[in-house]
Design a protein around this nucleic acid. Structure first.
Lengths: 126, 126
DNA sequence: TACATTAATGCAACTGAGTTGCAAATGTAG
DNA sequence: CTACATTTGCAACTCAGTTGCATTAATGTA
């Protein structure tokens, strides 16, 4: 579908991603923007930003949805193969830029792969 | 925690996995066993079988939980790193035995990784 | 600038996977 | 067989995400 109009909601949400490379969960955004946007709107705008290749989404270990700014994605092609890292101590999630090679699988066509790595992040390692 | 008693519920659920290597979603099992077991029991027994290293679980692209028989897992060590493949046409999920190498990441300790590959399965490729 | 069109929004109610508390049933050690 | 802790079923709940619909607000056109 994609964005057709430049609305206030879209600006508000884009601003949330402007300064950060970390992923943010939809729920976190809904809480954070509670006074500004309705939760339905948040979900719908995130959806559209993803369609447009501005954000990409993935599910964390609990099945909840996170969004992060796309770097190399466009609306015609998503580079979703990069892994996401979720810290088991603090819960923070970010995109990691390492390349994980998914081998060809006999008799199957691989289209997308989602990789969620769990462990301890830099700040929680000490 | 693990299994303490060999109850009817545990036998019923184990029977579901006896003949198949495919993964089954918790929801599918609940539907399938509706006349035999309560859904709470299904969730609880699956949980225990996972603790015991009999089954392993993972989330699919919609965040719903699937279970499959463990091959190399024990209750002290889970080999969760093997990828799962979900067919985007028919929805079927299975464990694939290919090895995906997750590189070390600077300043982070990788503990678990979950890999979900999506595409077309053998039967849906035609 | 005013207007008509149609997308976007807010709200309330809903959905559905999974969880919890508790009383009743059942497996098992002795 | 009995005692009693573990399991089960049930109903009610949680909570992320969705839907329908009436209202609001961008945007193209004149």
């Amino acid at each position: 579908m994609g964005i057709i109009r430049k609305t206030r909601s879209i600006k508000v949400l884009l601003a949330e991603f402007y300064n950060s490379r970390d992923a943010v969960s939809a729920i976190e955004l809904i809480k954070r923007l509670d006074s500004k946007l309705n939760k339905t709107t948040v979900y719908r705008v995130l959806d559209k930003l993803e369609d447009d290749g501005v954000l990409h989404s993935f599910l964390d270990k609990n099945g909840i949805k996170w969004y992060a700014k796309c770097n190399a994605c466009t609306n015609s092609k998503h580079f979703d193969a990069h892994p996401h890292f979720q810290c088991l101590s603090c819960g923070k999630v970010d995109c990691v830029t390492i390349d994980v090679h998914i081998p060809k699988i006999p008799n199957r066509e691989v289209m997308v792969s989602q990789i969620l790595i769990q462990g301890k992040c830099e700040s929680c390692l000490s």
